[in-house]
Design a protein around this nucleic acid. Structure first.
Lengths: 227, 227
DNA sequence: GGGGAAGTCTTACGGCCGTTCGAAATTGGC
DNA sequence: GCCAATTTCGAACGGCCGTAAGACTTCCCC
């Protein structure tokens, strides 16, 4: 009772100062943030509801009260962050379409796809942990998440359509495969993979400079599409 | 007692016929094969020791008796398949080196890296499930597996060294990053990702033709390295 | 064919898990 | 300042898990 109550009080005070939004549902937010962080760092199965509520300084029953179940919590985090990320991507894509009278070049389409997640990857970006969560959700996700990932391709279709228009000379399957390859490059941006890369290059590579990383990825993928 | 014993008897007979090797340690092999398959299909945490022993038709205690623990079993599968895969890769790389007087072109280096796993990916290949296991181990693996993956880069260094020699004009970090991108493309070859790709392309893509997939990947990656 | 080693079997222990329940506390409207 | 609704809390339930212990069986060597 005592330590948890103190933690709640200590966490609520600055929260209310910084962003007084959601004065209601403080607990729900504490759970959401703590869960996202722990899931991103350690995986869904390795983080228990008790871990989450302890880290958030709230009661054990909070997860089930506010979200219904652990899986529903995972899904809500996944859903909110996915919508947020895809909104940024779609905005960039439409800007590129407007700039180029309906059909932007391959590089700009890929930039719209890759720039938002790479921006999130920056060490001081507030969505850095969210991106790791999303990457992890792709391989370890719930049954429901897996179903959504495989079924709902409406977001991805925006990009494949734009690419088909930008390269009408290429067979359609070629476009799809190359988009698949590009997404593979992106989803490989996990902490563990960076660590291995740093060991291999003996420190010559640094993922902290996301601008440089974006340039490298765009150059690689654009050349791949031009092959 | 009765159903399990019958299952063992039924499974042992054809096993002994096909490959009479390991007439000893039949049970150990049954566990190994069943575990690899279940882990590859459903993930490490979603498969219990009871699932494995039931599928193998052996006793529950077999896993701990023959392998020590569930984690040790996972590690042994990972280790054996990794050694096997890397041996094939290294052989191909050395053949390429011999063919080209010490410094093969980028495409041949990448082919040595990608061809073995893509061969394993073929629908009728006996290592198809092993490859899925290895891909999964990369993201869901044990602490020990994760440590090995991040620490032991000796195998990968063979390829980065060859690439550095093939493209001495490129900065070293550029080589490392592009190798990282290429591996990302490779590790994205999961069943779930293929399914999504098939939905997106409305059936125009098929991962069954691994020869075509290899060509596509090599063309994409080689162009990326030439950028 | 007797004895010891290797393997198999049943059974159960201890532990962590997600979830639930009823009581207590807090909040907000009148 | 009271009542009802919402939220928080402590506690526990049922279940599945990995692992271990001990009895039993099989096999092989002397």
């Amino acid at each position: 009772m005592s330590p948890k109550s103190e933690a709640v009080a200590a966490a609520q005070a600055p929260e209310a100062d910084i962003e007084s939004i959601d004065n209601e549902a403080v607990t729900k937010n504490l759970v959401f943030v703590a869960a996202e962080r722990l899931f991103a760092l350690h995986g869904f199965q390795n983080v228990s509801v008790r871990d989450i509520t302890a880290a958030a300084g709230v009661n054990l029953a909070s997860v089930n009260y506010h979200f219904g179940s652990k899986d529903a919590l995972i899904y809500e985090i996944f859903r909110r962050r996915t919508v947020e990320l895809n909104r940024e991507r779609a905005k960039k894509l439409h800007e590129a379409i407007d700039r180029h009278a309906g059909s932007p070049p391959v590089r700009e389409i890929l930039a719209a796809l890759l720039t938002p997640p790479l921006k999130w990857l920056a060490p001081d970006h507030e969505r850095r942990i969210s991106l790791q969560f999303l990457i992890r959700a792709r391989s370890e996700g719930t049954d429901e998440i897996r179903k959504v990932l495989q079924t709902d391709v409406t977001h991805l279709r925006r990009f494949s359509d734009a690419l088909l228009k930008a390269r009408p000379d290429l067979p359609a399957e070629q476009i799809y495969w190359r988009l698949h390859f590009t997404l593979g490059m992106l989803h490989n941006n996990r902490f563990a993979e960076f660590d291995r890369l740093n060991v291999l290059s003996e420190g010559a590579t640094s993922e902290a400079d996301v601008e440089a990383l974006l340039s490298r990825m765009l150059a690689f993928a654009e050349a791949g599409f031009a092959a």
